[in-house]
Design a protein around this nucleic acid. Structure first.
Lengths: 163, 163
DNA sequence: GTGTTATCGTTGCAGGTGCAACAAAAGTCA
DNA sequence: TGACTTTTGTTGCACCTGCAACGATAACAC
């Protein structure tokens, strides 16, 4: 293939990036409109909804965010009053981060429309499509799992992760 | 569904973002190692390989980059000598951007391994998988095409685009 | 022609981001 | 105990990014 026969629009990494970014951007108009949440802040909040008391490191490992990104997101969420930081009693290094009342109430408002939008996306797919997509994404991940130069996958993104 | 039953790891937008970012990041070690190209610069370069003389706006429309991002990428590529800017003769507003000799020769080196990595990804998928993925991505895009709040799709990312 | 509008590329700005360096705390091992 | 290593969260820095505003040019309406 000649150099100038390469077509970006057919290049899988590009196509995934474009689709993903388009969806993320649309979604952020939902959870961003209400409270100006960034992607990082959104991920931290929904993770806290599930794992009520966690440290920065745990969030970092679970939601695919750099630890400094988590740290700054938590700091900002705290100043806005959506999250509270408490020092752990047993280990002075750890923080115990959790949602405040305001945090829960905000999630009450923004999570349903976000889930509804995902439903809207999924409604365009058949059951077979969904199964195929799961399988395909897992196959692509496994290529990178076997690639020492690729960044490892987060714990919770592995297919069998229960929690 | 209760608020705290929500699982980020199963949320389609999140999963797409994680996969896409993982792949992009790995890929950027290929074209970034040789010349320190950013994603934007990479997209500009490969677009120029195909459409030899184009304006900032054309690039912006074709490769899903904000025009200011294109402008800055082109500026940097020019200072590094990979790209040349010429004012159009017919329309003084337009720029005519093209690869230099160095630009072509860099692409000669980085495009093959990038394509090889895509092949490596695709090798994990069956023909049926590939067809399914095409169809699924197109279906998801169409949901957003029908959504006035979503950002419109780039011309060249439409399925039938010839060039 | 003239005044208005649209297009093109750049830039200022505020904010996000990754990476490495860092201090504090905990763990380890002799 | 005391020296060393590891872990945890924060921060400094350089860079990237999106958005809006801008000046310059072209197109348009009349």
């Amino acid at each position: 293939m000649g150099i100038d026969d390469f077509r970006l629009a057919r290049f899988l990494p590009y196509r995934l990036a474009v689709l993903s970014e388009r969806i993320s951007r649309r979604l952020s108009t939902i959870y961003g409109a209400e409270a100006g949440l960034s992607v990082a802040e959104w991920r931290v909040m929904v993770h806290l909804a599930r794992c009520h008391e966690v440290s920065v490191r745990e969030i970092h490992e679970c939601v695919n965010l750099d630890k400094s990104r988590v740290s700054r997101a938590v700091t900002r969420l705290e100043t806005v009053g959506l999250v509270q930081k408490t020092g752990s009693l047993t280990d002075q290094r750890l923080l115990s981060i959790s949602l405040t009342e305001d945090g829960w109430s905000l999630l009450d408002r923004i999570l349903p429309p976000a889930v509804a939008y995902e439903k809207r996306l999924l409604a365009a797919l058949s059951d077979a499509d969904c199964a195929a997509l799961d399988e395909i994404m897992e196959k692509l991940h496994r290529v990178m799992d076997d690639d020492p130069e690729a960044r490892p996958r987060s714990t919770l993104d592995l297919p069998g992760a229960a929690e």
